[in-house]
Design a protein around this nucleic acid. Structure first.
Length: 256
DNA sequence: ATGCCTTAGCAACTAAGA
């Protein structure tokens, strides 16, 4: 079973790339981020025609997450995270599909730091970690998939110096990501490529793609029962080089 | 020190991204 994380950076602008990806890669589960669309504007007909059911948590203009499943309808368990009634960002949706618990996550960017956006990011990570702990207590196969906006290690970025002041690699961001892993989650890409050097994002600016100046921020975390079934992980990098590409590439894990 | 590029909203620009 192939499970994908894909930050599409606007589902309307990216629809040809997304449909092409569904047709070519035939993933079983796709967790989308940055839909940048209210639910009434989503291209549901096209997704359905490609053979996928979806559970959606949209928002006008920015954010927005979804879980797609090949040939079936994911059953929604939760939208949003507990712990902040004021938070109206669409950044979390959790579903049940193919016997798995699957969450699609769009973690706040947090720039500029320090500042209120960084504070929001760190608080959001703590709320996510609380939810993740509850999921582990269910002792089921579960996957937490998405754009975490965290560069976990120095070898997950093309240049530590270039990104040193960025919210994505501050010690506070890394510490919370490490705390999440320490609960018992397995970072699938890191397990497959322990030496780092694997990117999932390349900026649109300054020729980052052409220079291969990227970093790893899209992560697939496996609960112990999912990790027992782990068979592979990777990045479908060539989609970043295509016409009208997202700045993120589809990133995947396979489990038995 | 700043913009680089892209998307969305909305019709000339700003917000947001990372």
């Amino acid at each position: 079973m192939k499970i994908v994380s894909y930050n599409v950076n606007g589902i309307k602008a990216r629809l040809p790339r997304l449909i092409e990806y569904l047709d070519e890669a035939k993933p079983d589960i796709v967790c989308l981020q940055e839909l940048k669309s209210a639910e009434e504007g989503l291209p549901l007909k096209e997704i359905e025609a490609a053979g996928y059911g979806g559970a959606w948590h949209g928002q006008k203009g920015f954010n927005g997450v979804a879980v797609l499943a090949r040939g079936t309808q994911p059953v929604e368990r939760q939208k949003g995270l507990a712990g902040d009634p004021e938070d109206e960002h669409s950044r979390y949706i959790e579903c049940e599909v193919f016997g798995l618990v699957v969450a699609s996550i769009y973690l706040p960017n947090g720039n500029p730091q320090p500042g209120p956006k960084f504070d929001y990011k760190l608080k959001w990570m703590e709320r996510l970690n609380d939810r993740a702990r509850a999921l582990l207590a269910e002792e089921r196969p579960a996957v937490l998939v998405g754009d975490y906006n965290v560069i976990p290690n120095d070898d997950d970025v093309f240049s530590v110096r270039a990104m040193a002041d960025d919210a994505l690699m501050q010690p506070e961001s890394r510490e919370r990501y490490r705390a999440l892993l320490a609960q018992g989650w397995t970072d699938a890409l890191r397990t497959r490529f322990p030496g780092g050097g694997v990117w999932t994002f390349w900026d649109y600016q300054a020729g980052a793609w052409q220079r291969d100046a990227g970093f790893r921020i899209d992560h697939l975390l496996l609960s112990p029962m999912a990790a027992d079934r782990f068979t592979g992980a990777g990045v479908d990098k060539d989609y970043r080089g295509r016409e009208k590409a997202s700045d993120h590439a589809p990133t995947w894990v396979t489990i038995r």
